[in-house]
């Protein structure tokens, strides 16, 4: 089994106008590599979940991970902010670099890393506290605000950037768990933004949402990609096509193919990618 591993350097020029009807970044914008993974292997106890995954993820672009269930896409995503550290039987090998810095070395504190690499989960998981507290929690524990006014400003701007401010401005002190599913997910995104991350990881952020809420989140993702490097795991190929500029296809724990989204969807190089995209399995 060969692993197709395109590098980012020659990916920009392959972008042409999209058949799938979404805007693409120009070559120079997507050009720089934010995250570089090299030969990542992940084991859950005896079972190996990822095999030699090497991938470059570019700055200021949305990268989507697609693939059938259990293919390892979420596992790889969780390697990027070392969320897998919290699972005792999980072992990660290989190197992952963010801005050229290895995140698995001793000198990197996972707590600091997770402030730089925010995460949004499959199920909206706001804290059972007020909307304000949900957003203010991160800045507070990281000491990002020196006073109440500054904290208020961070909360407001985060909620604005998450497109939620207009809906919740008059009820900031009400529980975040009382919002609708889509609002909760945007609240969670605001909570991640509030810490000022460079990368936002999204693990199937719309799988628990209805189509309208999904559309809102996708719109938001499109707005946020100017400021953050966004990696999204999705089950929906249509969503990958809509929101992402680059796509990586995982299968059976291996990275099969990655490249510009339109290329993966129109001209996949691997037959497995083709089979998956045309709906023959998964």
């Amino acid at each position: 089994m060969t692993t197709y591993r395109p590098s980012l350097a020659n990916s920009g020029n392959s972008m042409t106008s999209s058949i799938l009807g979404h805007a693409h970044l120009s070559a120079d914008k997507a050009g720089s590599t934010k995250i570089h993974a090299d030969k990542v292997n992940v084991f859950y106890g005896e079972k190996q979940a990822l095999f030699d995954v090497s991938l470059d993820i570019s700055q200021k672009a949305v990268t989507s991970f697609i693939g059938p269930s259990g293919c390892g896409k979420s596992t790889f995503l969780r390697c990027i902010n070392r969320m897998n550290d919290t699972i005792p039987i999980c072992k990660v090998e290989g190197t992952i670099e963010i801005d050229g810095q290895d995140i698995n070395t001793r000198s990197i504190d996972p707590v600091v890393l997770r402030a730089r690499v925010g995460m949004v989960f499959q199920k909206p998981n706001p804290f059972p506290k007020s909307i304000y507290e949900n957003v203010a929690y991160g800045p507070r524990i990281h000491g990002l605000a020196t006073g109440k006014d500054e904290l208020d400003a961070i909360v407001e701007s985060s909620l604005r950037r998450a497109g939620l401010w207009d809906e919740v401005a008059d009820r900031l002190l009400q529980p975040g768990t009382g919002l609708s599913g889509g609002q909760q997910q945007r609240l969670v995104i605001a909570r991640a933004i509030a810490v000022g991350p460079e990368v936002i990881l999204m693990d199937e952020p719309c799988s628990a949402l209805d189509p309208i809420a999904t559309a809102k989140i996708e719109e938001l993702i499109d707005e946020l990609r100017e400021q953050f490097c966004i990696v999204i795991v999705t089950h929906s190929m249509a969503q990958a096509a809509r929101v992402s500029q680059r796509t990586a296809f995982f299968h059976m724990g291996r990275l099969v193919e990655s490249g510009p989204t339109d290329e993966i969807f129109t001209n996949p190089k691997d037959t497995r990618t083709q089979d998956y995209i045309t709906g023959r399995f998964g």
Partner: peptide, 26 residues
């Protein structure tokens, strides 16, 4: 629910912060 722990760890809380700020109160 483990999602609460993940949420706290996800915004960069340390393990003890996640426990004492969120899990134990719940």
């Amino acid at each position: 629910p483990p999602s609460i722990r993940e949420a706290a760890l996800g915004v960069g809380a340390s393990r003890s912060q996640a426990v004492f700020h969120h899990v134990l109160p719940l």
